[in-house]
Design a protein around this nucleic acid. Structure first.
Lengths: 193, 193
DNA sequence: AAAAATACGGAACAATCGTTCCTGAATTAG
DNA sequence: CTAATTCAGGAACGATTGTTCCGTATTTTT
């Protein structure tokens, strides 16, 4: 008996990801959301509750999207070391080409909010754990296949990779546009494998 | 013929650093500043102009303090590799012991503001350049003294070090309290030297 | 002592914040 | 058609935002 929803909730969430990613939580106003999502104030609050709930939902969706593509990458990878370089090279490409560089939504949120919002802190921490596990499994596989040096323990390498990924995303967020800087970092990172 | 200032401007700036570091720019209200600095609203605005100017002054002071201690560390260092490990170990100690972990004020500011405030972007970028140069000079010296492997170029290693330092500070800001995580990262980093 | 200058606390500002509510139009199912 | 539900738009909410201003107290210099 009801009118059907005219907007796609997931599409709206994708829009929310965009603007929260770009401006941060505190930097995004309710008016920004109305403008960017194309929803009315009322629809927005009826659908998502409030700003914090919308943010959490956006961040979780972003996380899922990234984890999915990360898993897919490693599943289809013949060479693990190549796959790892692809991840970093992709991050570099995004950092250089984005006219407005947004870095990583998860990293940005961790820095801005993890200390002050326990719910965000949990998401960030879970994400770290899961990504680390994915890296760790991949490294192990790579070591078994003789594609990655086993002079370092897989867990240790995984954490190291995660750390450098965060660093590069911060660099991007800070607006670094010199490809050589990224390439130098990558060169050092992969000297370890 | 004038009354003298009753508060120390530098001490007030140190207080401002504390609260901006903890809560971020957008997360810190004028009332927060009044409460934490112990100044009246009027004195605060008379002395520092406005919130943005106060933030810029705070960040610059923080930068100077850090650069000074960084330079001092390397000047007095007999062994460069040891000095580098000290820097990271110190960051880890701070990350673990701080009941409320604040990460690095410069990294936090880069993530929150560099995209949206050109003045902050310039500070962040300058800082990156200067720190990178300090690291680079130190690495070169270390390589000359045979304390650091010269399989990697100094500039590349310097950027790599900077990147990992950023990463660790993000990890701290995200609330990571597991020492093993940091130690694993450090182990990988210094396997390269 | 008089005059000049500054710090102070607090009132007050307009603007914006996130949020709620109301109205009327649109669309669906029975 | 009727009833039910959701839409959009905008008015309005109280709270908080960053900022300004004023009156008074305090201190310094002449």
């Amino acid at each position: 008996m009801a009118r059907t929803k005219e907007f796609n909730e997931d599409q709206a969430l994708d829009k929310a990801i965009e603007i929260f990613w770009h401006k941060g939580y505190n930097g995004t106003s309710a008016q920004d959301l109305v403008n960017h999502l194309g929803l009315s104030r009322s629809s927005l609050y009826d659908t998502f509750g409030d700003k914090q709930k919308l943010f959490v939902k956006s961040l979780k969706r972003y996380q899922k999207q990234n984890l999915d593509s990360l898993n897919e990458l490693f599943e289809n990878a013949e060479n693990i070391k190549t796959a790892l370089t692809e991840i970093f090279k992709q991050a570099v490409i995004e950092s250089l080409q984005d006219r407005i560089t947004k870095g990583c939504f998860m990293v940005n949120s961790a820095v801005e909010l993890a200390m002050h919002d326990p719910e965000i802190a949990k998401i960030v921490h879970d994400n770290q754990k899961v990504v680390e596990d994915i890296f760790c499994a991949a490294v192990k596989k790579g070591q078994d296949l003789g594609q990655i040096s086993d002079r370092q323990e897989a867990r240790s390498l995984a954490r190291f990779i995660f750390n450098n990924y965060s660093g590069i995303r911060v660099l991007a967020r800070a607006g670094e546009k010199d490809k050589q800087v990224y390439d130098d970092i990558l060169k050092s990172i992969f000297a370890l494998f």
